[in-house]
């Protein structure tokens, strides 16, 4: 059934997957669309691939998250450029929000990307814009499958840039091996750094825009705050996307970033919740249950009973 992409050109998906793994950018883009649209599952996609040799050590999928406007896109662009120059195939899945009203989205992360135009490295840089569509949270869970497909065909560094995220937005923990939180200067007083949330899950923290006043103070407040708790603090670094200060050392630190041992339970919690949400929303009866809930002919308790959370996704 899942044989024609867009039902247009009669290209078999298994051929498209093969051609993607041979490096065709157009096929990579089309396979990612099929995964995103649910016409191809990750396991189906991987089935037609030969197993990868020489898997990379360390991480393959890193989430870059933080509040809107702290400079995630520019930082990500600088990181990709460094890593691609070192010979790594580096991909970015850049997530922007869908309008809850129309379902549409304006995906503007490319505007700030220069690495995709750099003739010396552009073969090793892939950028794909993704809208959140119907999911809650700063990263749709399907992005994990898209990232894993890219890893499987040799893009061994995949970055996920989340929607600008608030303190309690932890969903990126469910899709990435490493989490980097980007902060800006003057992000509130010392108490903000004490608050629980996203920062607790960070494997590293970049305090960006360090060319502006307040960045150093914020970084030292963060360090102090982590010093009060148990366990090792994540590395905290100052960077400036504008002047390039700190970028070189951030790129080499993040390249070999170990996973923080803190907050393991919190990470697993995000994975569990994300998986549960995905099972509910991919249940064959989901749309009908939603309609009945909206009409008032079904209550939440019965709805949960109906959708029970078994795995109804296509397998193999």
């Amino acid at each position: 059934m899942a044989l024609d992409i867009k039902g247009m050109r009669g290209v078999r998906l298994s051929d498209e997957v093969q051609s993607a793994s041979n490096g065709s950018r157009r096929s990579i883009a089309r396979v990612l669309s099929s995964i995103e649209n649910g016409t191809l599952s990750l396991s189906q996609a991987l089935e037609s691939l030969s197993p990868i040799v020489g898997e990379v050590d360390g991480w393959s999928i890193m989430a870059i998250t933080g509040a809107p406007g702290v400079g995630k896109s520019v930082l990500v662009d600088a990181l990709m450029s460094r890593w691609a120059h070192q010979g790594h195939n580096t991909a970015l899945l850049a997530v922007d929000p869908s309008s809850p009203r129309s379902g549409g989205a304006l995906l503007g992360d490319r505007v700030r990307m220069t690495s995709v135009d750099d003739e010396a490295i552009k073969e090793r840089v892939y950028v794909r814009s993704i809208a959140t569509r119907a999911t809650s949270g700063s990263v749709p869970l399907i992005v994990e499958d898209m990232a894993k497909f890219l890893v499987a065909i040799g893009w061994n560094r995949v970055l996920i840039e989340t929607v600008g995220a608030g303190q309690s937005e932890l969903r990126c923990a469910a899709v990435a091996d490493r989490i980097v939180v980007v902060e800006g200067p003057a992000r509130g007083d010392g108490i903000q750094a004490e608050k629980a949330g996203l920062l607790e899950l960070a494997d590293a923290i970049l305090v960006n825009k360090c060319d502006l006043e307040g960045a150093e103070k914020h970084a030292s407040e963060l360090k102090e705050s982590f010093g009060l708790g148990a366990g090792e603090a994540p590395p905290i670094m100052l960077t400036s996307g504008l002047t390039g200060e700190g970028i070189e050392s951030a790129a080499s630190l993040l390249h070999d970033l170990p996973s923080s041992q803190r907050a393991k339970r919190a990470r697993m919690r995000e994975r569990l919740l994300a998986q549960h949400e995905r099972r509910l929303t991919s249940h064959p009866l989901y749309n009908r249950v939603m309609e009945d809930l909206a009409k008032g002919t079904l209550d939440i308790e019965k709805a949960l009973m109906t959708l029970k959370g078994e795995n109804h996704e296509r397998s193999g």
Partner: peptide
């Protein structure tokens, strides 16, 4: 966007090649 589509905006002053590579990579 308001009609429900996903719009990828390239920004200003793009070459033909840059535009086509964006169309290709973004499917």
């Amino acid at each position: 966007r308001d009609a429900g589509h996903e719009v990828i905006y390239t920004g200003l002053r793009r070459t033909a090649k840059q535009i086509v590579e964006t169309v290709r990579d973004e499917d």
